[in-house]
Amino acid sequence: MFRPTFGLCVEKWGKRLFSLIFIPEFLGILKMSDKDKRSELDKFDTRLKQAQDNSTAPRGLKAATNEPPKGLGLALRCGADLVSGIAVGVAIGYALDTFVFDSKPWLMVLFFFLGAAAGIMNVFRTVQGLGIAAGYKEDYIERAGKDDNLKD
């Protein structure tokens, strides 16, 4: 019990003595710790800003938007797009032929080509990353043009 107290006492008084003897140095130390305080505050400031940014930024995995798909995903998607366009075209043509006009097989042939065109358009839009939307969209076309410019 005694020893640590004594030690503390010595330390404390030693410090005071030191500070009394080396007043200029003591003042220097004071000044430095002052500067340290400021930099500590600045550091805290940056950390706080970071935390605020983190808390406002969206959490979780980032879902990719309208980005052109790559590799195998692209291949699988394009195949399905093309095939489904043709399938729907043929189905519509077949239905019109059979149930409406009795004009077998001409409408089916016509709609096969329309469906193929729709399928190719689907694929084109998928590849361009324009979304899988029907309808030419002005901003999409603009964006595509910009992208081309960027590539050049």
Binding site: S84, I92, I132
Partner: peptide, 12 residues
């Protein structure tokens, strides 16, 4: 073509 493209969505 656009209508077929739209209708092909559920199929694809």
């Amino acid at each position: 073509i656009e209508i077929i493209s739209y209708l092909s969505r559920p199929v694809s």
